[in-house]
């Protein structure tokens, strides 16, 4: 099936600003799904609120656009009640880790089979450029007009510690890697986290004087490096890309079948 077939033409044009990274994520996520040859009827995309979360409206799957921060909890209900469906949950960094932080760590801890895609633009785009838990120390935002003094999360470390069994990172510059990682994340049985550094030229870019969308993407090229590369050893400030965790662990819905068996409720 061509990527176009995964799109709801009727609902275009999309709402993102020119140069926004979220469209690149949409494009490459669909390419990943295409290679997996999944039926559209078997995919449920659940999202919260934010520019990133609007992604669910544009795709021709079962789509559930929910409330801010709670997408993973809605997705848990869908998955538990119909474990055979494939769940993909795209989220903004604020959506996933500020208001939704609690649901995030608990979904990871349960190792419930779904793919969380965190589109990390280090800012609240939808509400106009306030700092997020991923803005980082020293950044500027409309609510940090002098400087941001909040330390940021490391999504990879956080996901690992919370129990995610697939953890990876890529950027909107590294589209082939992104597609490959999302494909593997969706195939993985368990809770998968994919962090994608995605530019918001409109707010984060402007407020932090990072230039155009192209400048921001070029910066992703210059400031990231594959996991364990020589460059990382020479320059520890580089951000690593690739798959950090990929392991087999009991999956929640499969485990629940054991509960049903013990209770004598098997068919």
């Amino acid at each position: 099936m061509a990527v176009r077939d995964y799109i709801r033409d009727r609902f275009f044009p999309h709402m993102w600003c020119p140069g926004c990274g979220h469209g690149i994520v949409l494009n490459n996520m669909l390419r990943a799904i295409e290679t997996l040859e999944l039926s559209k009827n078997d995919i449920v995309m659940v999202s919260g609120i934010g520019c990133s979360s609007r992604i669910s409206g544009y795709v021709d799957f079962h789509t559930l656009h929910t409330i801010h921060g709670r997408a993973l909890a809605f997705a848990t209900g869908v998955k538990m009640s119909r474990p055979e469906l494939t769940l993909i949950v795209p989220m903004g960094d604020g959506d996933a880790l500020a208001i939704g932080g609690n649901h995030f760590i608990h979904a990871a801890r349960r190792n419930i089979d779904m793919t969380a895609i965190i589109m990390n633009n280090r800012i609240y785009g939808m509400t106009g450029g306030q700092y997020s838990p991923l803005s980082g120390y020293g950044a500027r935002a409309s609510t940090a007009p002098y400087m941001n003094i909040d330390q940021d999360f490391d999504v990879v470390q956080l996901s690992k510690a919370a129990g995610a069994t697939f953890v990876a990172r890529s950027t909107t510059y590294h589209v082939q890697q992104m597609t490959d990682i999302i494909r593997q994340a969706i195939s993985h049985k368990g809770f998968s986290v994919v962090e994608i550094l995605s530019q918001c030229p409109t707010y984060f870019g402007r407020q932090n004087k990072l230039g155009t969308a192209v400048d921001m993407m070029t910066r992703y090229k210059d400031t990231t490096t594959p996991i364990g590369s020589k460059a990382k050893k020479q320059n520890p400030d580089l951000i690593e890309r690739g798959i950090f965790v990929q392991k087999e662990m009991p999956e929640y819905c499969t485990e629940y079948e054991k509960v049903i068996e013990r209770a004598g409720g098997g068919a």
Partner: peptide
Amino acid sequence: FGGVHRYNVTG
């Protein structure tokens, strides 16, 4: 959800 009609649900 999971059936033959794919639609969007939103608040």
